[in-house]
Design a protein around this nucleic acid. Structure first.
Length: 451
DNA sequence: ATAGGGTTAG
């Protein structure tokens, strides 16, 4: 049934001498899995004795084919629902990004023995996380622990991912400890989530320890550790891991090469970057995506090879590919660092043609003009930005500490401890300036800007 | 026997 063999399943089904409700349900599920919604409804109309599995299959099939309201109709008509019924319809709302509606159903569903279970909780926790409502996800996870349900490996995976996005090392380490208690800390999905959590919280030592202690690795494990090193500017270590991966029996995928190419970019390894790009196409038969082109253009551009980056764009066009906005963005960033006014103007024009409402593009272009003293042009760009009704949002950052949080807005000095906070920042700034003395000024600046 | 969930980039 799975591999597109619907017709064969159909024939078998038609010829079966004694079909029972399980056979019917399996057939309905198969139709949905093969995108044949109408045939599924056809069977539903002729099934002699539908049971709760039949309706649950309909709900999940409709949800997965994107028809939430069709699923809701089935849900409303049912006179007895079980926990799977509820979880399926809740997952449907989550799938559509209607998280508040999902939450309402989560509160309405029955509690107790056959009611709200681990799956119900995790659907809501991961649903909140998908919408970026990470703190609410954590709160719900805490509430789940207060109930008598114990987390399983999907729960750990999901909450560790939230920790990596916040990021929240303390909570992440607590969750790791809990997973050890339940002996789920060696399952591949939980380990992969741990690697990402440690990496994104800045602890590559623990990330590597976790990776090394895993019994087996899959492509996600490798991608997680490689991109972890890459993210921290540890290009050589990232490439070392990739070379190790080539000796394993796990095949790299598109994401592996995003990590590898951006590692080359951060480490300034132009030749290696070119080599891996060709290796990906010619040896692994992977079609480069917009993301890969962006990495390679970023690699050239960061190193000041703007002409080479531009000829790469020509090559893309010659291959009949659209030049994605991210590629022009990479060129623009390179022109800022290397003060290339001519190409910078072209890149900005191309970015603005696709995304006219991003204030950052205007600001970078103005900065490029300012850096070479063309103040009339600076004025012109800022006027154009205003004319197009684009407003620059003030920069904003926040930090949470033991006794509460603090929010900072660019230009705002109203924080009670402003002076005490700014002092070490100024020391840091002086340190960076000192670093640039006696070394290549441009290089340090490029690191600073691309931070 | 048949139905519901989780992991990798920027």
């Amino acid at each position: 049934m799975r591999g597109g063999l619907v017709e064969e399943a159909e024939n078998l089904f038609d010829e079966m001498p004694d079909r029972n409700v399980v056979t019917w349900n399996t057939m309905i599920n198969g139709y949905f899995k093969n995108g044949q919604k109408e045939k599924a409804f056809g069977l539903l109309g002729s099934i002699p004795n539908p049971d709760i599995y039949t309706y649950n299959t309909m709900i999940s099939g409709l949800v997965q084919s994107g028809d939430l309201f069709g699923a809701r109709k089935v849900f409303d008509k049912m006179d007895s629902r079980d926990v799977v019924t509820w979880n399926s319809i809740i997952a449907g709302y989550v799938h559509k990004g209607m998280i508040d509606e999902a939450m309402q159903l989560f509160h309405e569903m029955p509690l107790g023995m056959r009611g709200r279970d681990t799956v119900s909780w995790i659907v809501m926790v991961s649903g909140l996380a998908k919408e970026g409502r990470l703190e609410e996800g954590v709160k719900l996870f805490m509430m789940m622990k207060e109930s008598e349900l114990s987390p399983d490996k999907a729960t750990f995976t999901s909450i560790l991912t939230i920790c990596s996005e916040l990021p929240a090392l303390c909570l992440g380490e607590q969750v790791c400890a809990q997973s050890i208690k339940t002996a789920l800390n060696h399952t591949i999905e939980v380990c992969n989530a741990m690697i990402t959590m440690y990496a994104r919280c800045g602890n590559m030592t623990s990330a590597l320890r976790c990776f090394s202690s895993m019994p087996t690795h899959n492509v996600i494990s490798w991608n997680s550790i490689i991109s972890g090193f890459s993210h921290h500017g540890l290009g050589p270590q990232a490439l070392e891991m990739f070379e190790e991966m080539r000796f394993s029996d796990v095949k790299p995928n598109e994401l592996t090469f995003i990590a590898v190419l951006s590692a080359c970019s951060h480490a300034g390894l132009v030749e290696k970057g070119k080599y891996y790009f060709d290796y990906m196409k010619d040896e692994c038969f992977l079609q480069p995506t917009a993301g890969h082109y962006t990495c390679i253009v970023d690699l050239f551009g960061r190193f000041g090879l703007i002409d080479e980056a531009m000829s790469f764009i020509d090559q893309m066009r010659a291959d009949g590919l659209e030049v994605p906005v991210s590629v022009w963005g990479a060129i623009l960033g390179a022109c800022r660092v290397h003060r290339n006014v001519e190409v910078g103007a072209v890149a900005a024009e191309n970015v603005l043609a696709i995304e006219p409402n991003r204030s950052g593009t205007y600001m970078i272009l103005a900065e490029i003009y300012a850096s070479v003293g063309r103040l009339n042009e600076v004025e012109r760009v800022l006027t154009q930005m205003k004319k197009n009704g684009v407003k620059k949002q003030p920069g904003c950052s926040w930090i949470e500490m033991n006794d509460g949080g603090s929010v900072f807005l660019s230009g705002d000095k109203s924080h009670l401890e402003f002076d005490r906070i700014v002092e070490p920042l100024e020391v840091l700034h002086v340190d960076v300036e000192l670093m640039s003395v006696g070394s290549d000024q441009n290089l340090v600046q490029s690191c600073w800007h691309s931070g």
